[in-house]
Write a protein that binds this DNA or RNA. Structure first.
Lengths: 223, 223
DNA sequence: CGGCATCCTCTTTGATACTG
DNA sequence: CAGTATCAAAGAGGATGCCG
């Protein structure tokens, strides 16, 4: 019943036992699935258990349950129990959980080249793509803010909103976006990551509408 | 012999099977010990097998061997086989491996608050502390460069050198550092992370020598 | 000594089924 | 909806052996 054997430790994985901030972070975040749960809560915001399960195809139900309990014990997640009329639980990130976003962003940036050759049976969720795109629009000049980017791909339309207090993503469309990018998800990501410049990306089917000057604020290669 | 069952995949861990750059990054980096091996190679530079084992107390020898092979297969590590006179192997990070440093840095920053209450039997390596300190000196104004920081703690003296092309750390001392910080490792880290301002840190035994103006370039709270 | 490989035990994960 | 229960398979940890 009790999976904890060492009292005082809230993580399920065995600690590395190293007095090092990287190791301590991995003691909490390094379990399989843990950072993907944080990803889902960062993208989707407060989630029901089933919303999480839906955004984490492949996770076993007991593992999702275990990980949520660990995240809660470590202060990254809190659960809001809605009263009987609604009778559901909402899982929220705490401030400390939000503070882990730079880790997820760094992983997303490093991982982008890997989505080029991906097995055909990989699971797909549009919000993963939108979020992956948004991580390249975070270090921008503060001049041209706020800015909105409309993404149109076969996965459906989605929006990235860049404000001084952060970047948010959502499905759907926005009126008068500063930039509209249309094309295949991989091409859009390779362009935003700097792997392709504008000319190359257009050669691979990218269509861009809007003010190219706005792109400069994102340090993108408009050659 | 062959631990791989799915042909074409170089990682040992089962893939998440998600078309998402975060999940793809974790397919490669998410195995236990993997990011700590990258940490060691980032800090120590090219390493012999035993150097790595020494910087990774607790790792099983077969796991270190397995992980190095995975990292090599995934293009993060390459091995330099020295000819018979030396008869040793040096493990290097590739450019792609170096590119994972932002992930390690983000983990180090997030994990710093966790080293406050740490079990007394945790392993200690001075270079972990120096590196953890250095991650807070990376986003600086380019004006006052290069800059050198001397750290003196009971773990021994060490140096952080901040140049336009990056930040490096090493054990030992430097002549005429721009800043010298003396005190307990935890206090120095809490000060550099912004968790303590200068006055608070000095109240906990931090001694600072050098030009406080240099600190401003690191966005540190000199109140 | 450096760089593993083998063997063994224990823990964690994955898949599925079931429940208040 | 939000989990438990169960069980087989895979991975981690630890000891030791091997070979240039």
């Amino acid at each position: 019943m009790d999976s904890q054997t060492v009292p005082g430790y809230a993580w399920s994985m065995k600690s590395y036992g190293q007095l090092c901030s990287v190791a301590k972070a991995l003691d909490v975040l390094g379990d399989r699935w843990t950072l993907l749960i944080v990803r889902e809560l960062l993208i989707q915001g407060p989630c029901r258990y089933t919303d999480l399960a839906n955004g984490l195809p492949g996770i076993a139900s007991n593992l999702l349950s275990d990980r949520l309990r660990s995240l809660e014990a470590n202060g990254l997640v809190w659960r809001e129990a809605a009263p009987p009329p609604v009778a559901t639980t909402l899982f929220h990130l705490t401030e400390r959980g939000q503070a882990a976003e730079p880790v997820v962003v760094a992983l997303a940036r490093w991982g982008t080249p890997l989505i080029a050759d991906t097995p055909p049976d990989d699971a797909i969720r549009p919000h993963w793509f939108t979020y992956s795109a948004s991580v390249f629009l975070r270090d921008h000049d503060p001049d041209g803010l706020p800015a909105t980017v409309q993404l149109n791909t076969p996965l459906g339309p989605s929006v990235i909103e860049i404000r001084t207090d952060g970047v948010s993503t959502r499905a759907g469309t926005v009126d008068n976006p500063d930039i509209t990018l249309e094309g295949m998800p991989q091409v859009i990501l390779r362009f935003l990551s700097g792997d392709l410049n504008l000319t190359e990306a257009q050669g691979q089917g990218l269509a861009l509408r809007g003010d190219p000057a706005v792109l400069a604020a994102f340090h993108l290669d408009t050659a």
